[in-house]
Design a binder for these strands. Sequence first.
DNA 1: TAAATTTGACCTGT
DNA 2: ACAGGTCAAATTTA
Length: 337
Amino acid sequence: MESSSWPGTLSCKRLKAIQELTRGQQLTNKLREMLGQQEKIESDLMLVDGVVAEILGMFDNTLSILNSYTFNEKPHIQTHDMRFQSSVDDQQSHDSGESEKSVRPVKNKRGCYKRGRTSSTFTKVTSTLIDDGYAWRKYGQKPILNAKYQRNYFRCTHKGEQGCQATKQVQKTDDEPPKYVTTYNGHHTCKNLQTASHIILDTPNNRDNSFLLNFETSTPTENKPTSPCLISMKQTPKEDLPSLCLENEQASSSNNHTPWDPLTKLSQVSFEPMSMILSGFDHEDMIFSEVFSSTCSTNCYKIDDMIGINDFGELLYECFSPTFSKKEEELVIGHLM
DNA sequence: TAAATTTGACCTGT
DNA sequence: ACAGGTCAAATTTA
């Protein structure tokens, strides 16, 4: 358990958190400018996507920093945004010795693991397999009851070296055309975010290019309304690979072998658009719409609906004002700008 | 040869 | 008992 305290490691970590929040503020402003432009071409949308990814990474880093403090030692973070409060509460419960004892997997015992969703679990549905900039390693796949396709399990490649606990599950639905239900668990604590690396792994319809995030608690195998996906190209599939569609996976479920599995190919390139924003709070705590939709065809990013740009400044002040003077804060921010 | 994937075993929760 | 999630040895890939 992390035992760092505010007084002890305050300067360094606080500066880091401020730096992350400030960066997020800048990026959000940049995003607003980009969205203000009426004429959009696809390359612009890819840029927007990249900026969004950076903002999300900022949230992730900041929350990781803030969550690294033990709850009792933290100054009270009084924010009107309950999302952040729930993050603190959630962290507290996770840090309690007893609960940790009950869920900690026994080392070197196969199959012993902490079951159930972590605080930052959410599901999204896409029509394509796309990159979220993180490196994932596939660690399992299972046939799921009443599901035509097997569910694939991924964990962060840096779990071993950096202890990153982020995992995700990818389930192809029975829909026609099929959708990909990705359930993210936990958030990345690794420092290996490969920003601006977004990949089209499967684009049955390039016009169909928006994505939908679903924070409901329903199971991933349920059919969900979906919309197209916003994605961009990074690499091309191997020449003789069947275009990253899952026909072969389907065949594998009946033939008990998997000649080629695009979800495996996805292990290096997946998509985690909102995990950072949602890190540390349950979906039950969502105070905004249960469904976050970003449709590039209408350029309708709703980031502002979720956290106002001015909230960054408020957050900076509310997080650090108890022990950090406004003057000091301004000095730091000025230095960062 | 190291890294990634596959896959059956093992474990937990219901 | 069953379904789902994870482990880790075996296998494949780059």
